[in-house]
């Protein structure tokens, strides 16, 4: 188990260091987020500042930013032909996968750290809310597990950009349904926040375990 954690953190640190040096993903994701808000506002034509559409806009932006972040996690390895050497090491496939998913999840959380204040500025939602942060982070963990599983799969096929959204989005629906409710509560509508957060945690555990087990078969060549 300790070797699993060591490998996972090493892979995650490698990915984060690459991002820190190249500075490609985070600026792109940050710009994407602001553009998504701009399109949403003019697409919906809301009168009262946009609070009622804010949760939907938030989820659309998070899911599509997630597709970009998770897709890049494995596409970059493939472009550099560095996935095979990584898999040739005796490290466990599940640990390598967990590390990549962890780094991608952190990137998406960083993107959400831009999204939530931007939503606050443009759509009059709270600029910081503990409930909102908890819901987003919990949903991001499970979405990263599933998203990176299918990103790893898609990266090994042709037409990979086509495959990831089609596979990941339907499987993310539970996170959107329950996370959507949690965000609505955090933004002042509905109730049962604790139930929603507890469910998100359950989904996280289930799908992170399932994805790590399945990763063995996806990262095998």
């Amino acid at each position: 188990m300790s070797s699993f954690l060591r490998v996972a953190t090493a892979v995650a640190r490698k990915d984060l260091r690459t991002e820190l040096r190249s500075r490609e993903m985070l600026p792109a994701l940050g710009q994407f987020v602001v553009l998504a808000l701009l399109i949403a506002f003019f697409g919906f034509d809301v009168e009262t500042g946009g609070l009622e559409i804010a949760p939907g806009v938030l989820w659309l932006t998070v899911t599509f930013a997630g597709l970009v972040a998770f897709g890049r996690a494995f596409a970059a390895e493939r472009d550099q032909a560095s996935l095979e050497p990584l898999l040739l090491t005796p490290a466990s496939r599940s640990a390598i996968f967990a590390g990549k998913a962890l780094a991608a999840a952190l990137l998406l959380v960083a993107c959400e750290a831009v999204l939530v204040p931007a939503l606050g500025v443009f759509f009059n939602t709270p600029v910081f809310s503990l409930e909102l942060t908890a819901a987003l982070v919990l949903a991001t963990i499970g979405m990263a597990g599933l998203g990176c599983l299918f990103a790893a799969l898609a990266a090994q096929t042709r037409a990979r950009d086509l495959l990831l959204p089609v596979l990941a989005l339907p499987l993310w629906i539970p996170f959107v349904v329950v996370g959507g409710r949690a965000v609505q509560v955090a933004l002042g509508g509905g109730r049962d926040l604790n139930g929603a957060l507890a469910l998100l945690l359950d989904f996280d555990i289930l799908f992170v375990v399932v994805a790590s087990l399945a990763a063995k078969f996806v990262l095998d060549d």
Partner: peptide
């Protein structure tokens, strides 16, 4: 076969 099996199994759980 492998990729489809993974999608079929994880999808069924979902």
């Amino acid at each position: 076969g492998r990729f489809a099996a993974v999608v079929g199994i994880v999808g069924f759980i979902d």
